[in-house]
Design a protein around this nucleic acid. Sequence first.
DNA 1: GGGTCATGCCAAAGATCCTGGTCGTTGAAG
DNA 2: CTTCAACGACCAGGATCTTTGGCATGACCC
Lengths: 226, 226
Amino acid sequence: MPKILVVEDEPDMLRGLRDNLAFEGYEVVETSDGNEVQRLVGSEQPDLILLDVMLPGMDGFEVCRQLREAGYTTPILMLTARSQEIDVVRGLELGADDYITKPFGVRELLARIKAALRRGGGVEGMTEHLRIGEAEVDLLRGQVRRAGRTYPLGHYESEILRLLTERAGQPVTRATLLDKIWGTDAFPTDRTVDNHIVSLRRKIESDPRQPVHILTVHGVGYKFIP
Amino acid sequence: MPKILVVEDEPDMLRGLRDNLAFEGYEVVETSDGNEVQRLVGSEQPDLILLDVMLPGMDGFEVCRQLREAGYTTPILMLTARSQEIDVVRGLELGADDYITKPFGVRELLARIKAALRRGGGVEGMTEHLRIGEAEVDLLRGQVRRAGRTYPLGHYESEILRLLTERAGQPVTRATLLDKIWGTDAFPTDRTVDNHIVSLRRKIESDPRQPVHILTVHGVGYKFIP
DNA sequence: GGGTCATGCCAAAGATCCTGGTCGTTGAAG
DNA sequence: CTTCAACGACCAGGATCTTTGGCATGACCC
């Protein structure tokens, strides 16, 4: 079950959040001190952070900024009584994923948590390292490892694979691939896309003639299945 | 620039949204008919959907449900005057990524759109996007943008730059670069490294003959200065 | 300042990637 | 079942990347 870090200095609020989250089955780690957050994120590896803005000492905005600067991508939901637009904008621009103003209903909070966890854990395109069947894909290095062999991924192969995984489960047209990847710099033909797909299958699929992950959607384009 | 599908039946609201989004640089596709949405998502492949809940005919909840059921993972932001908790929860549980109640500020809306786009496909780790002087480096795509031009980064150029930036401030020997990047697969000469450095400087430094970031440490190797 | 070694720059060759065309196979529609 | 369009597989040519070697320039030491 997902682990949630709750950062809240009001004892009653902290207890309320902890109890409700625990009742929902989440594992809860808590602190009331903004200075503790980064250490806890590093050691506890939570799946989501509920972050009160008005903390003593380092406030929630600063905590969020530092986490993002340090490279953490954990979903952050800010909680606060400060509901002015400028505060909302500030929190979201600092890198928060959602901004919930008090008072809020527990059901709404839980629904927003679920929405954030749904995105944070389920989308495969968010990461540069992928496991696709037996293949380990490193999009950063442009490399696939499968069955004891290492295959290089060219620039365009990487881009195509990335777009398909970002849109896992949904058909992507060749026109979209051409538009999003080649843009207005070049105008290759559909055949170019097809060739790259064949090459990707050869590198990734256990049996390229019977692909399991990189599927053709006849008359539409291609689809990625995780 | 990202493409946004706006689903809104009030003409004034639709115009307002369209104008503001276009002003921000987004490409806007619009419809006032919930029955059109799935077709448009398929044909236009928007990066995000702004979905009014109270539409004539098929309402926003049903549109959202059908999109998710069909496997589309495009971020959906619901807009509505219905701000009861039960509606918020319903929208989020149907698969919306955010639920924004009218009236809302344009700045808040834009910030939430950016947050959703950031998560949806634009989130890159901190080490993959670098700003080096005037140059914007995208290690994931193997690309440098500087002075209005775009330069490709080859596989090895990217690897060298990545290692140097990971060890910013420290001199890195050619032997280390060769060992860490080429390993035991190949045994190129020092000259190979030197040539890649020259190429990197040409792409990244404002004045490659007087480098500020990718420096030579005489008799040792090279050093990156942020 | 002079000598020596390290590094920048350049050119060319080889390897790899990308692209388009052709032909055979497959899928979908009538 | 037949027909036609879509797609897979393959091949070859052109573009780009990587590597090596040679020469010029710069840095360092005496």
